[in-house]
Deep mutational scan, measured.
Amino acid sequence: EFILQPIHNLLMGDTKEQRILNHVLQHAEPGNAQSVLEAIDTYCEQKEWAMNVGDKKGKIVDAVIQEHQPSVLLELGAYCGYSAVRMARLLSPGARLITIEINPDCAAITQRMVDFAGV
């Protein structure tokens, strides 16, 4: 995967993360976080594997957030924003999600994903 990915990106003209974002923009409903998550899950199941938590493990994350109702949540590494959208949609009003992503391209994609999801 890591050796072939740059070749695939070159042939496709963009990165996997950008392709995931484009899929979301084309297939998800703006302002609907659940729709965004479903679009990412569908893309990763049908098109390309991606390094995200996914729906199965995501339900565990959901349960922890719902049980503890944090007022501040810190995410280290956002990748394409799946977990940020997943967690933010469950936060109480006034709660904050702080996401740190070292890769500026992934940070920009995450910001667009979060904005599109409306969270």
Rank of each mutant, 00 (worst) to 15 (best):
E1G: 13
E1V: 11
E1D: 15
E1Q: 14
E1A: 13
E1K: 14
F2Y: 12
F2S: 11
F2V: 15
F2L: 10
F2I: 12
F2C: 15
I3N: 04
I3M: 11
I3V: 09
I3S: 10
I3F: 15
I3T: 11
I3L: 09
L4M: 09
L4Q: 05
L4P: 14
L4R: 11
L4V: 10
Q5K: 05
Q5R: 12
Q5H: 13
Q5E: 11
Q5P: 15
Q5L: 13
P6L: 04
P6A: 07
P6H: 03
P6S: 07
P6T: 06
P6R: 08
I7S: 14
I7M: 11
I7N: 10
I7T: 14
I7L: 12
I7F: 09
H8D: 10
H8Y: 11
H8P: 15
H8N: 09
H8Q: 14
H8L: 13
H8R: 07
N9T: 12
N9Y: 10
N9H: 13
N9S: 14
N9K: 05
N9I: 15
L10R: 10
L10P: 15
L10V: 15
L10Q: 02
L10M: 09
L11I: 08
L11H: 10
L11R: 09
L11V: 09
L11P: 12
L11F: 15
M12V: 13
M12I: 06
M12K: 02
M12R: 15
M12T: 10
M12L: 03
G13S: 15
G13C: 04
G13V: 07
G13D: 07
G13A: 07
G13R: 11
D14G: 15
D14A: 13
D14H: 09
D14Y: 06
D14N: 09
D14V: 07
D14E: 10
T15S: 07
T15P: 05
T15N: 04
T15I: 03
T15A: 14
K16N: 06
K16E: 10
K16T: 11
K16M: 07
K16R: 12
E17D: 06
E17G: 05
E17A: 13
E17V: 10
E17Q: 08
E17K: 08
Q18K: 08
Q18L: 13
Q18R: 13
Q18E: 08
Q18P: 01
Q18H: 11
R19G: 09
R19P: 04
R19S: 03
R19L: 00
R19H: 04
R19C: 15
I20S: 02
I20T: 08
I20F: 10
I20N: 01
I20L: 06
I20M: 05
L21V: 11
L21R: 13
L21P: 02
L21Q: 00
L21M: 03
N22K: 12
N22I: 05
N22Y: 13
N22S: 14
N22D: 14
N22T: 06
H23Y: 04
H23D: 08
H23P: 01
H23N: 11
H23R: 07
H23L: 00
H23Q: 05
V24A: 04
V24E: 00
V24G: 01
V24L: 00
V24M: 01
L25P: 01
L25R: 11
L25M: 10
L25Q: 00
L25V: 08
Q26L: 06
Q26K: 03
Q26P: 00
Q26H: 05
Q26E: 05
H27L: 02
H27D: 02
H27P: 00
H27R: 06
H27Q: 02
H27N: 00
H27Y: 03
A28E: 00
A28V: 00
A28G: 06
A28S: 03
A28T: 03
A28P: 01
E29G: 07
E29K: 09
E29A: 12
E29D: 11
E29Q: 09
E29V: 08
P30A: 04
P30H: 05
P30S: 12
P30T: 01
P30L: 14
P30R: 15
G31R: 02
G31V: 01
G31A: 02
G31W: 02
G31E: 04
N32K: 05
N32D: 04
N32S: 11
N32Y: 07
N32I: 06
N32H: 07
N32T: 04
A33T: 09
A33G: 12
A33P: 08
A33E: 04
A33V: 10
A33S: 02
Q34E: 15
Q34P: 10
Q34L: 01
Q34H: 08
Q34K: 08
Q34R: 11
S35C: 07
S35G: 10
S35I: 03
S35T: 01
S35R: 09
S35N: 11
L97R: 02
L97Q: 01
L97M: 02
L97P: 01
L97V: 08
I98V: 09
I98M: 08
I98L: 06
I98N: 02
I98T: 01
I98F: 10
T99P: 03
T99S: 14
T99I: 12
T99A: 15
T99N: 08
I100T: 11
I100N: 00
I100F: 09
I100L: 11
I100S: 10
I100V: 09
I100M: 06
E101G: 08
E101Q: 12
E101K: 13
E101A: 07
E101D: 09
E101V: 06
I102L: 14
I102S: 14
I102F: 11
I102N: 10
I102T: 13
I102M: 14
I102V: 14
N103K: 12
N103Y: 12
N103I: 14
N103D: 15
N103S: 12
N103H: 11
N103T: 07
P104S: 15
P104T: 07
P104R: 15
P104H: 13
P104A: 12
P104L: 12
D105V: 07
D105H: 13
D105N: 14
D105G: 13
D105Y: 05
D105E: 09
D105A: 06
C106R: 14
C106F: 03
C106W: 07
C106S: 13
C106Y: 03
C106G: 13
A107T: 08
A107G: 13
A107D: 02
A107S: 05
A107P: 00
A107V: 07
A108G: 04
A108D: 03
A108P: 04
A108S: 15
A108V: 05
A108T: 01
I109F: 04
I109T: 06
I109V: 07
I109L: 01
I109S: 08
I109M: 00
I109N: 00
T110S: 10
T110I: 06
T110N: 02
T110P: 02
Q111E: 05
Q111R: 06
Q111L: 06
Q111P: 01
Q111K: 04
Q111H: 07
R112G: 03
R112Q: 05
R112W: 03
R112L: 03
R112P: 02
M113T: 12
M113V: 05
M113R: 00
M113K: 01
M113L: 01
M113I: 02
V114L: 05
V114M: 03
V114A: 06
V114E: 00
V114G: 01
D115Y: 08
D115G: 14
D115N: 14
D115E: 15
D115V: 13
D115H: 12
D115A: 04
F116I: 08
F116S: 03
F116C: 09
F116L: 04
F116Y: 12
F116V: 04
A117G: 09
A117T: 00
A117P: 01
A117V: 00
A117D: 00
A117S: 02
G118R: 05
G118V: 00
G118D: 02
G118C: 03
G118A: 06
G118S: 03
V119E: 05
V119G: 01
V119A: 03
V119M: 04
V119L: 05
